[in-house]
C-alpha cells in the first residue's frame, strides 16, 4: 500500500511540476511581446503620466517574477486579467465558453467511449476476421482524415442535402438541453469519429498484447471457456491499459475540439482562442492555453494514477 501511495504522490508531484513549467511558459510568452497591457489599451490621447499611473495601479512596474506569482495566484482564484481587444475581464469571456466546450467534449465522449471499447475488444477477440479487417480499415481512414473532412461531409449530407440537422451550432444560455443535444449532434459525431478510431486501435492493441501472455495460454490449457477467459482472466489485467487509453483520448478530445468548434461556429473556448490568436489578444490566449493545458495535464495525470491503482502487482506488494 505504501508503495502505491508513494507512486501516486510521485505522479501528482510530477504533474504539478509540469503545470508550473507550463504556466511559466505561458507567462513568459507575454513578457516576450513588445508593449504591455497598458500600451494596448491606452493607444492614443493619454499623457505619459496617466499611463504611468495606470501601470503602477495594476502593478506593471513590479519585476517579472513578482508579477508571475501574482498572475499565478490570481489565475488560481479565477482572475485572468483583461482582454486587449474589448477590455472585458477574461474570466467573463471564458466562463460560458468553457462550459460549452466541456459540454461538447462530454457529449462526444459519452458516445465515443462505449463504441470504441466495444469495437476495440471485439476486434481483438476476433482478430484477423473479416470484422476485424473492416474495423481496422475504417479506423485507419478515420485517423487519416482531418477533423474538418468528417465535419463537412456530415454537414453536406445531413444538413444541406437531407436538411435533417442544422449546420451551425448556435447555442445561447437559454437553449434547452434537448435543443442543445440536437444542435450539437453533428459536431459531437465528428469528434466521436476521430477519437473512436484512436481509442479503438489502442484498446485493440492493449487487449491483443494481453491475450498473448502466457497466463492466458495457461487458462486456455485449463479448459477455461471464452466468457470466463475474458471476464476473469483478461479483464482484471486489461483494466489498467484500457483506463489509460480512455483518459488519454479524453485529453485529446478536449484539445481536438478546437477545429470542430471553428467548423460549426460553436461559441466554445477553442474558437475564442483561435480568434484571439489572430488578434494577438494575449491575455485571452494566455487564459485559453492555461485552461486547455490544465485539462490536458490533469486528464493524463488521472490516466497515470488510475493505471497505477488498477495494477494487481502494485496492489498486493510482496
Amino acid at each position: 500500500m505504501i508503495q502505491i501511495v508513494r507512486l501516486v504522490a510521485q505522479r501528482i508531484a510530477l504533474g504539478l511540476f509540469t503545470l508550473l513549467i507550463v504556466t511559466l511558459l505561458i507567462f513568459l510568452a507575454v513578457e516576450l511581446l513588445p508593449g504591455d497591457f497598458v500600451d494596448a489599451i491606452l493607444r492614443q490621447g493619454r499623457t505619459q503620466e496617466s499611463v504611468e499611473v495606470l501601470r503602477r495601479q495594476i502593478g506593471l512596474d513590479q519585476p517579472a517574477y513578482v508579477r508571475y506569482f501574482s498572475w499565478l495566484t490570481n489565475a488560481a482564484q479565477g482572475d485572468l486579467g483583461y482582454s486587449f481587444s474589448n477590455e472585458r475581464p477574461v474570466s467573463d469571456l471564458i466562463g460560458n465558453r468553457l462550459y460549452n466546450t466541456f459540454f461538447l467534449a462530454g457529449y462526444a465522449a459519452a458516445m465515443a467511449v462505449p463504441v470504441a471499447l466495444t469495437f476495440g475488444i471485439l476486434a481483438a477477440l476476433y482478430r484477423n476476421s473479416v470484422f476485424d479487417r473492416v474495423v481496422n480499415i475504417t479506423a485507419l481512414s478515420a485517423i487519416s482524415s482531418p477533423e474538418f473532412l468528417a465535419a463537412y461531409i456530415l454537414i453536406f449530407v445531413f444538413s444541406i442535402q437531407l436538411g435533417w440537422l442544422p449546420s451551425l451550432a448556435h447555442i445561447a444560455i437559454d437553449t434547452s438541453l434537448w435543443e442543445s443535444l440536437k444542435l450539437l449532434f453533428l459536431p459531437a459525431v465528428t469528434l466521436t469519429l476521430v477519437t473512436v478510431a484512436h481509442m479503438m486501435r489502442m484498446t485493440r492493441a492493449a487487449i491483443i498484447n494481453l491475450m498473448t501472455s502466457p497466463y492466458i495460454e495457461m487458462a486456455l490449457l485449463k479448459g477455461v471457456g471464452p466468457k470466463r477467459l475474458i471476464l476473469r482472466h483478461a479483464l482484471p489485467n486489461a483494466l489498467s491499459p484500457i483506463v489509460n487509453v480512455v483518459a488519454m483520448n479524453l485529453a485529446y478530445l478536449v484539445v481536438g475540439v478546437v477545429v470542430v468548434e471553428v467548423v460549426f461556429v460553436y461559441p466554445g473556448l477553442g474558437q475564442l482562442l483561435v480568434d484571439s490568436v489572430s488578434k494577438r489578444d494575449m491575455p485571452v490566449v494566455q487564459a485559453g492555453c492555461l485552461v486547455f493545458a490544465v485539462t490536458y495535464i490533469g486528464l493524463n495525470l488521472v490516466a497515470d494514477i488510475l493505471s497505477i491503482i488498477t495494477n494487481p502487482r502494485l496492489l498486493n506488494p510482496s
Binding site: S213, P214, K222, G223, R232
Partner: peptide
Amino acid sequence: KLRNLRGKRIAYVAQSAAAAFNPAH
C-alpha cells in the same frame, strides 16, 4: 469437447510459472 478434457483430464505445467500464473488472482 477440448475444453471439457483440458484441465480435468489433461493438464499442463509450463516452463515459466512466473509468467503462467495470472498476476491478478
